[in-house]
Each structure stands twice: as C-alpha cells, then as structure tokens.
C-alpha cells in the first residue's frame, strides 16, 4: 500500500507500483488536467509538481511518487488565480490548449524559484515542454508578465 498526497488530499494506492503517476492521476483519480503526450518525458504535457519540483508524471512510477506531495494543474489554484495562470489568460496564450496545463506547471515551478527569469533561463526551463500549435512566443511573454506582476 502506497501513500501520497495529491493536491493536499491523502491518497493510498495498492495497484502496480510500476504504474506511472500520470495514469494514476488520470485513470484512477480522474484528474484529467494532466495530459499524456509521449510517455517518455519528451514533451512535458504531463508536468506536475512533486514536492514543489516540476516532474514528468509519465516517467515517475508510483513507487517513486510514494510519500511525496503531488500538485497538479487542478491544485495550482482553485480558480485560475495563480499569477502564472492569470498571465496566461491575459496574454491569450493557448490555441488548442492541450499542452498548456503542463506548460503552466513548468512555468509555475520556474516562477517559484526565479521571479525575474531572463530569456535564456526561460528557454532552458521550458525546453522540455512542446507545443505543436506553436505558442512559445506568448508563453515567454506570459512568464515575463507574471514576473512583472509579482515584482
């Protein structure tokens, strides 16, 4: 029996401990804001926070998620009021929107450790998050906007 906290709620899991956190969140808990995109940590669609750090849920087995605090997009704020979410809306970032929960979680992790990232730091932090619609320019602008708001 594994124990973990998801968005502040204590959970237990007695399934296959090799199951990736992604599918536990999506198929078992029904938290579908975290997306599947590649299954190999190549696209970042499944980015969540584990003990405050951005991780790819598709390659974190439940055995490694045990005992940690997981935050998903559903838990970032109850109403979209996180500064990164607000900036995303203000800059009108999404097109199809599918990758955006992962982008937002990645950006929120960057934001929590660095309030004023440079272009190079943004590029580096966001390099693992793919967007097929090509919203990178707006993602960069939104991260800077969030930083400005916080400052």
């Amino acid at each position: 029996m594994l124990r973990l906290k998801v968005n502040g709620v204590e959970r237990t899991f007695d399934g296959d401990s090799q199951m990736p956190l992604l599918w536990y969140l999506r198929d078992i808990l029904g938290l579908t804001g975290t997306k599947y995109g590649c299954g190999m940590a190549l696209c970042g669609s499944c980015t969540v926070h584990q003990n405050g750090k951005a991780v790819r849920a598709c390659v974190v087995p439940m055995s490694k998620a045990a005992g940690s605090e997981i935050r998903t997009i559903e838990g970032l704020s109850s109403d979209g009021s996180h500064p990164v979410q607000k900036a995303w809306m203000k800059i009108n970032v999404p097109q199809c929107g599918y990758c955006q929960p992962g982008q937002i979680m990645q950006a929120a992790a960057l934001f929590s450790s660095n309030h004023h990232p440079t272009d190079a730091q943004i590029d580096e932090a966001m390099a693992g998050n793919l967007c097929r619609c090509g919203t990178y320019q707006r993602i960069r602008a939104a991260i800077k906007d969030a930083a400005g708001e916080r400052a």
Binding site: G30, T32, G33, T72, S77, Q85, W88, M89, Y98, I104
Partner: peptide, 27 residues
C-alpha cells in the same frame, strides 16, 4: 475576443477527447 475556452484551459478543466470518461469503461 479571447477563446471561449481560455479560462477552463488554463485551469486544466477543458474537456478533450483524451479526458472522456464513462461509467464502467475499459481502456
């Protein structure tokens, strides 16, 4: 105007085909 779905997308609540669920479904 911004996308009608902007807020739900940014909150992870937008419903994509990947997110469809039905009672008793198999995968």
């Amino acid at each position: 105007s911004p996308s009608y779905d902007l807020d739900t997308i940014c909150c992870g609540k937008a419903g994509y085909g990947m997110d469809a669920q039905a009672e008793g479904m198999l995968f």
